[in-house]
Design a protein around this nucleic acid. Structure first.
Lengths: 150, 150
DNA sequence: ACTAAATAGTTGTGCCTTCGAACTAGTAGG
DNA sequence: CCTACTAGTTCGAAGGCACAACTATTTAGT
């Protein structure tokens, strides 16, 4: 920053934009996904993480979702109840629980991914072509900054 | 992206980035308010909107926050109870209610803005200087696209 | 080994958020 | 004047999330 005041001013913009972005996204309503599926946002994210890596320890799921372990405990219980994930004690650590997607869970996750993809494809189409790559880049930069400085 | 399939692929990236962004931001936790004041997020957002434009009709506050009118009704009642906003019937429309910040409300809003500014300034400092403007631009573009294409 | 500190999960509690439906009141058009 | 629409209010209920307290397991320190 070359000036003292500049980051402050821009900081104001940043937060306001983030706020409206989140609300525009429908994330202030965590009990349903913005993609219209009958799954809560947290559940959808959990399935997404499990699709990415499996098995996953419950504590790792918690840190990826940035949720309290108690919250994750309940979340996982729900997912198990729906038949989407299975739980097994870790062979390496008797305290830990390994999570795995069931077949049904995998199907659900795939469906969610599909719905998300469609939604975002629509969003992307609303972005001028030459802006798309910059926008994606910017999001990456922002996330990295948030992990460091936030 | 001159190919047909490209937007879909990029769409996948976009959604994953959004998800991690939101969680990295702590926006999945609605009751977090880094400021010393006992203010909830929804209240903070309302104060923010009122700081931006005043007076504001209650229905307009609702559409800006993307909340149901009933939700906003309650929210406003709380804010009024804390002495932060005043309500008057609109002179032009006997049904509508005009919202205005009180002096105390203005002070609170200023305090909140300050706290947010500090938090976001740290994030911004973690962004390379030449990236800051593009990032902000990108957020704006993205929100607009979400309003149209979402 | 044996105890103390740390770690993974579970459950109890309480706060906060939001929505939808039903109802009142003011407005606008024919 | 009657009807349809719009702004708000109130009621009820579904959920999400965190913190604290408690159990079971693992890891360190002596």
């Amino acid at each position: 920053m070359s000036e003292v005041g500049a980051p402050v001013v821009v900081g104001l913009e940043l937060q306001e934009r983030m706020v409206s972005l989140v609300r525009a996204f429908g994330l202030h309503r965590p009990d349903e996904t913005p993609c219209g599926q009958p799954v809560s946002v947290a559940e959808a994210h959990a399935l997404m993480e499990l699709s990415r890596e499996e098995p996953l320890l419950q504590k790792d799921l918690a840190s990826r979702l940035r949720l309290e372990k108690s919250t994750v405990s309940r979340l996982v219980r729900v997912l198990e109840g729906r038949g989407w994930v299975g739980r097994t004690r870790s062979p390496h650590d008797g305290r830990a629980v390994e999570l795995r997607l069931t077949e049904a869970g995998r199907r659900t996750a795939a469906g969610l991914a599909e719905a998300r993809r469609e939604k975002f494809a629509r969003v992307l189409e609303a972005i001028p072509e030459e802006e798309r790559a910059p926008v994606l880049r910017a999001l990456g930069v922002l996330e990295e900054a948030m992990n460091e400085g936030g």
